[in-house]
Amino acid sequence: MSSIAGIGTDITYVSRIQAAYERRPERFVQRILGPEEQVVFARRVERDPRRGMRYLATRFAAKEAFSKAVGLGMRMPMAWSRMQVLNAPSGKPTVVLAEPLAHWYNQRFGAAHVSLTDESDLVMAFVIVESQT
């Protein structure tokens, strides 16, 4: 039986993310999103800019919540683009980590669970990380 090793949550205004994005769009996206997330963002923002901004904001919030759950904050080996939230075929958001964060995480924790929600100008992310079994 696994137990909870950490919990993190974050609430973010979409308008705050949009303002940061508008200052330096490419740089902001590359800094915050991982490679697969960037592809999804580009499709969404092209189809509907508001939907794209909500996607960017939910991913930002998820990364903040994850960094809190693992107790790192935004310091090495944690980096925005090393933690991605990608959707499984069912639509369930899943945590995907890149090196060196993946190695650091796998030595300390078990599964990570993430829940995202958005409502007009607010988004929220909730992350639970399990202890190693």
Rank of each mutant, 00 (worst) to 15 (best):
E64H: 00
R16C: 01
R59E: 07
I17N: 02
A42P: 04
P35M: 03
E26F: 09
D10A: 09
A42M: 02
A69V: 01
I11D: 09
Q84S: 13
A69S: 07
A57K: 02
R82T: 02
H103G: 15
A42D: 12
D10R: 06
P25A: 14
A62F: 06
F41S: 08
R23N: 01
F66T: 03
A79R: 14
M74N: 05
T12H: 07
P25F: 11
R27S: 14
F60E: 09
V70T: 05
D48F: 08
D10I: 05
M76G: 10
V95K: 03
E99L: 01
Y21N: 08
E37K: 09
G8S: 05
V39M: 12
D48T: 10
F60C: 06
T12V: 15
H103C: 14
I11E: 09
A98K: 12
A20F: 01
R16Q: 10
R54Q: 15
E46T: 12
M53K: 00
K92F: 10
A88V: 01
F41Q: 06
G34H: 08
F41V: 08
E26L: 12
F60T: 11
A57E: 03
M76V: 14
A42T: 12
L56E: 07
Q30T: 13
M83R: 03
M53S: 01
L72I: 01
D10W: 04
L86R: 14
V96A: 13
R82D: 00
V29Q: 08
P100N: 04
S81E: 12
R75D: 06
R31Y: 06
Y21T: 07
V45T: 08
V70I: 15
